[in-house]
Design a protein around this nucleic acid. Sequence first.
DNA 1: CGCGCAGTACTTGTATACAAGCATCCGTCG
DNA 2: CGACGGATGCTTGTATACAAGTACTGCGCG
Lengths: 246, 246
Amino acid sequence: MTRHTRYRGRVTRTNSRRTSRRAVYETLRRKVLTLELPPGAALSENELAASLGVSRTPVRESLILLVEEGLVQVFPQVGSFVSRVDPDKVADAQFLREAVELASLEDLPAELDPELVGELRRNLDQQHRPGLTVEDFFALDEEFHHGLLQLAGHGSAWATVVSAKGHLDRARRLGLQETPPEGFADQHVEIFEAVLSGDVAGARAAMRTHLRAVFDDVEAIRERSPELFASASGAVPVRRNVVVWE
Amino acid sequence: MTRHTRYRGRVTRTNSRRTSRRAVYETLRRKVLTLELPPGAALSENELAASLGVSRTPVRESLILLVEEGLVQVFPQVGSFVSRVDPDKVADAQFLREAVELASLEDLPAELDPELVGELRRNLDQQHRPGLTVEDFFALDEEFHHGLLQLAGHGSAWATVVSAKGHLDRARRLGLQETPPEGFADQHVEIFEAVLSGDVAGARAAMRTHLRAVFDDVEAIRERSPELFASASGAVPVRRNVVVWE
DNA sequence: CGCGCAGTACTTGTATACAAGCATCCGTCG
DNA sequence: CGACGGATGCTTGTATACAAGTACTGCGCG
């Protein structure tokens, strides 16, 4: 059956259309990660839809994705809630990122991409700029770790790490409100210097120290603000009265 | 403002209700991973809904989750397709699982959980049973690797690995149609013996060899069946005529 | 004052209707 | 015969309606 038109070959262009769901998803995710929506807060699909000016559909689909990331819990016929920070999940994320980031250091090529190296340098400079807000430092921190993975050719593994470390991030963000980031910035420099000099073992050691320090920081937070963390066994959502902490 | 009833404390029971979306999601995911829905196949929300006897809603929500896992691609106003196996994503999954599984071996406790050890033993026995189907071996393989992670207290990291290794699994499944699994089963035994004897370095070496062998297997597949793999740059979905491979 | 019980309001899950956009088909024209 | 162009059908995105189920509220009773 010969066809007149073969190879119409319409290469479907970019799939990144500005869709309503994407906007809602990003908004909600940001609010959860920045604790603007605190752990335990009740999320009503209807309320969110109304406040965001959309229907339930994109809101609901966004919540499904956030559930997948562990940032939200949905109880059928009961309600949706920002999940409390789960210490087990924090530890899982810590293990995962440590495994991934340390392993990537073993795959660093002999010749580092000069462009990436330049970006990382500028990034580190900014990290030491005085008067940096917590949010700014966080963004730089993310970019730095992502950049290191890219340097080893494993940049796409970062997406997996990101989607798994939501619980870790929320705890950290809270901690950085009090702990100044200078120490972490210095550790970043130490890691980077080792990477530049080709000292894989040194880079691994520095990275491990750094990540462990971040993790210990979280443990300290937990002692000061246990309300944000989940207790053992399933949490107890209460629909209205978001009594979360006191 | 005193309230009459405090601590109503209705602990919301299990959230694992048998929902329609869950069933659809699991069905679709299984069909994609087992290649019953081959890479490149067109998925119509309407058709799927009709054939599964539900409305578009649960189908659509399932597809969103599958997109998140990279198993499906959705092009707005064009169509949804089972994603072709992307060599880059296969490599990413390989890197991730290697990093995680090797790192977990470092965290093995001195005293191994005897119950888990027993399970793993039985698992390995079954792997060597003759007449094993590919699907059976796959299930055992998954259980074995998951069990090893549990042995080190990192069982929950398996979920992340699973959600990232869909592309790797599809390629492997195709390969195992021809390559008998005996070799892999023997490697599993070797890893397990090293773990039991507390030989972390040996276990790491054996595990690395094993995972690399699996990966190389995938490369061999690709040469024989390039149709299932994505070419460089964005794939070209065609709505009707699922010309996928000639 | 405390408790129990029924009604009500709200929740999420699912089904359906409508909107916007793209690919295909087929007639027309060169 | 080949190429162009508009009508048509199908696609996903979004909005809305309905269903099933739960928690909260307030009344009546002991």
